[in-house]
Amino acid sequence: MELKEDKNRIRLVVGWIVDIAVVISIAWFAVFAMGTQIRVSGQSMEPVLSQNEKVLMNRLSYRVMRPKRYDIIVFEKETGNYNIKRVIGLPGETVQIKDGYIYINNEKLDAPNDLGKAALAGLAEYPISLDKNEYFLLGDNRSGSEDSRFSNVGNVKFRQIKGKVWLRIQPVSRFGLISSR
């Protein structure tokens, strides 16, 4: 009888181990099948994202829906490099930076965490009209960001957007979901 109980315990433990391995495998596949690991380059998104941090980008999110204001996205520049910025202006809107503040369709952007401010206007000193598939992107560290305010980036077309940043995976001490606000 003792031998039968030992076999049942072993089967139970092995069953649990197999179940856990299957769940971990499915979770790993789901995360990496729909996501891509990206290394943050530069300080343009500080304090939200810092140099050399690794994040996961959801490649499928914008196949189903369009980027929203304040989403942190990955886009491909004409040079082929990937960059991470925040969506500020949406298709069909007019963006302008006046007196250190961002205006969307002539209305001051009321944004949390100073996201509605930008000391340097660049190209946005004058109104910028976005076409139906264009976005205006800014880095959170406005004084240290090369973004839509400059001609080498400019307005970003929807086809250039590769996905939404959603999870920081390194460093482990800062592991967690990335909030758009």
Rank of each mutant, 00 (worst) to 15 (best):
L3F: 13
E5F: 15
N8M: 13
I10D: 07
V13P: 01
V13H: 00
G15I: 05
G15W: 01
W16R: 06
I17K: 03
V18E: 01
D19N: 15
D19Y: 04
I20M: 10
I20G: 08
V23H: 08
I24G: 11
S25K: 08
F29D: 03
A30R: 00
A30S: 12
A30T: 11
V31H: 10
V31E: 10
F32T: 10
A33M: 09
T36F: 10
S41N: 12
S41D: 15
Q43C: 02
Q43Y: 05
Q43L: 06
E46L: 04
P47E: 03
V48Y: 02
S50T: 11
S50W: 12
Q51R: 12
E53Q: 15
K54H: 15
V55E: 08
R59C: 10
L60A: 11
S61P: 00
Y62C: 05
V64H: 08
M65K: 14
P67C: 04
P67R: 04
K68Y: 12
D71K: 02
I73W: 07
V74S: 03
V74W: 03
V74K: 01
F75W: 09
E76Q: 15
G80W: 02
G80I: 06
G80Y: 02
Y82V: 01
Y82I: 03
N83F: 00
N83G: 01
K85Y: 11
R86P: 03
R86I: 13
V87A: 08
I88L: 04
G89M: 05
P91T: 08
T94Q: 14
T94R: 12
T94Y: 00
V95W: 01
K98L: 13
D99H: 05
I102K: 03
N106W: 00
N106L: 00
E107Q: 14
E107M: 10
E107N: 11
K108G: 02
L109H: 08
A111Y: 05
A111G: 07
D114V: 07
L115T: 01
A119V: 11
L120V: 12
G122M: 09
L123W: 02
A124T: 11
E125N: 13
E125F: 01
Y126S: 13
P127G: 09
P127M: 13
S129I: 08
L130N: 03
L130W: 01
N133K: 11
Y135R: 03
Y135D: 02
F136C: 10
L137D: 02
L138V: 06
G139T: 07
N141I: 09
R142M: 06
R142K: 14
G144Q: 11
S145P: 05
S145Y: 02
S145H: 02
D147E: 06
D147K: 01
S151D: 14
N152Y: 03
N152V: 10
N155L: 09
K157F: 04
F158Q: 12
F158W: 08
R159Q: 14
Q160A: 09
R168A: 11
P171H: 11
S173E: 12
R174P: 03
I178M: 07
I178W: 04
S179I: 01
S180E: 13
